[in-house]
Design a protein around this nucleic acid. Sequence first.
DNA 1: ATAGAGTTTATCGCATAACGATAGAAAGCC
DNA 2: GGCTTTCTATCGTTATGCGATAAACTCTAT
Lengths: 275, 275
Amino acid sequence: MSLTEPRADEAPAARPDAGKSTRDKGGALMVNSVEKAFRVLYAFGRQHQTLNLSQVAAETGMDLSAAQRFTHTLTRLGYLHKDAETKRFELTAKTLDLGYHFIRGSRLVDRAMPYLMHLSKETEETVNLTMRDATEIIFVSRFLSRHVLNTDVIIGTRMPAYCTAPGIAMLSRLPEDEAMAVIDASDLKAYTPSTTWQREALREKIRQAAAQGYATAFEEVYLGDASIAAPILDHRGRPEGAVNVAVSCSRYSRDDVVTRFSALVIAAAHAVSRV
Amino acid sequence: MSLTEPRADEAPAARPDAGKSTRDKGGALMVNSVEKAFRVLYAFGRQHQTLNLSQVAAETGMDLSAAQRFTHTLTRLGYLHKDAETKRFELTAKTLDLGYHFIRGSRLVDRAMPYLMHLSKETEETVNLTMRDATEIIFVSRFLSRHVLNTDVIIGTRMPAYCTAPGIAMLSRLPEDEAMAVIDASDLKAYTPSTTWQREALREKIRQAAAQGYATAFEEVYLGDASIAAPILDHRGRPEGAVNVAVSCSRYSRDDVVTRFSALVIAAAHAVSRV
DNA sequence: ATAGAGTTTATCGCATAACGATAGAAAGCC
DNA sequence: GGCTTTCTATCGTTATGCGATAAACTCTAT
C-alpha cells in the first residue's frame, strides 16, 4: 500500500470534512461542463422539440444561470438555434456532424459497406449493420427494402440486445459469463407475446446461436418483423458488430428465413470479420 | 447594430486590465470546455480513425494535460473508446445519439417523412430531405433508389449550397441580398466542368429557380448525377429545407428530369410547407 | 393604462474546478 | 542494456465557470 508513500504529511489532520467535496463525480480528470452540455442537448427530443430557457433549466435540473450559459455556448457552437422572436431553442442539423464523423471514421463501416450493398441487392430486403453498446445494439448502417419502409428505425436507433437477432448474435461470440452479465444488466421484459425474455431461455438462445453461427428473432420487438443475424469478429475474435437481414413475417415462414438468408448473412459477416 | 455582438463594453473606465485577458473568446457566457470537447471529438474522422493521446494533443492544439482531461471525460461519457492494449482512442457508436435526437425531435422531418416515402415509391429514385447551415446543405433524411447505391452521401453529409439543387432551391426563397450574401460567403469553385460557380451566373440561377419554383443541378458536383429540388417554407415563408430527387444522367435527359419530376418535388415540398 | 406574474438578459464577487507543468511509470526501440 | 517516447498521476495556482441577483422585457388581465 503506502510503501511508496514518501510522506503522509501533506494534509494529515487537514481534511476538515473529508468525503465532502472529494473531487469525485467521475474521477479527478473529469471536466463536468462537458457532461452538462450534453445534458442540455439531450433535453430536446421527441417530447420536447423546442424549449425555452426556463424549460431547459427545469428539464436538466440546472439553475437558470447554468442553463443560460450552456444554451449560449451551444448556440454559439451551432448545435442549438434560438428563435429570435419566440426565444425558444431547438436542435440544429449540425448535431448530425458528430455521428457523421463516426461513420466516416469507422473501419468497420468502411469494410462492411460493400458487403451490405451486395446483400441488399441479392436479397432485396432490409439489411442492417449494428454495434453493441453495453446492453443495447445501435443501428449504424441501414439499407431499406422498398417493401417495408419502417420509419421508426433509423441510424442511431437503439434496441435491447437480448431481444434482437444482432444482439444475440454478438453475445454468442462472447465468453458465456460475459454474455450473461449483459443479460443480467438488461431490463428484461416481453415486448410482444413472442419475446424471449427469461434468463435461462436467453442463455439457451445464445448457446444455440453460438452453435449455428447465426441468430434469429421472430416478432420479439415488433409484431410482423423477422430478423436473422451473424456476428462480425475483430482480430482477436471478439464480436464488434453484426449483419442482419430483416423481413416481414407475412412473406416468409420461419424456415424460409433460415434457409434463404442464413448462409448469406454468415458469409457477409465472415467477409467483414478480421478473425 | 450588432445585436449579436456581446458589446465590447462601452463601460469605459472600469476594467483595470482591459484588453488583456478580457473574458472574450465568444462572450462572457461561453463555457470553453464544451468547445474543447468537440475539438477532441472532431479530431477523429476519415484521416484519423484512431488516435493516441499525444496525437489528440497535436491534432487539437491542446497540451497533454488538456488532451488527457478531455479524452478521459469523453471516454467516461461513452463517446470515446480506449483500447486497453494499444492505448488508442476511437469514436464509439454513441456519437450517433445526438443526431438521433435531432431527427426524432425535428418537426420538419416528422412532417416530411410520409411525403418523402410517397415520392420514393412513386419515382423509384433517390429522394432526399436537406436543410441549410450557412453556406452548406446537410442531408437530413434519405431514401435510396436501388439503382445507384451511392455510399458517399449519407445522413449528415454536407455540400456547398451553391452547386446543389436543394441549395439553390432554398436560396431562391430568400431575399436576394441575403441569398447573395450566402453566395459571397461561399468558397466558389468548379467541382466539374459543369459547375455553375460564378457569382452572376448563380444570381441568375437563383432568380430562375424562384420563378420556376424548383431548381436543378446537372453534374455540378459529381459527374453523372442529376438532381431537381423544391424548397420547403416555414410559417413565415422562409425556406427551412428542400426536397429533391436525384437520378443518374445516363437514364434521363435534362428535359426528362424536369418533365417527370418537377411537379412531384414541388407538390411534396408544398405539402410539407406551412406557408 | 397599469399592475403583476413570468419571462429573458446582464452583472459581479467568490470559490472551486479546470488548468498546465512536471515527475514517475510503462512501453517501445535501437 | 540504455534510450526515446508515450502514458499516468499528482499538485499548487488562478483563471474560469458558478449562481445569486437585479434589470429589462413580454404578455395578460383588469
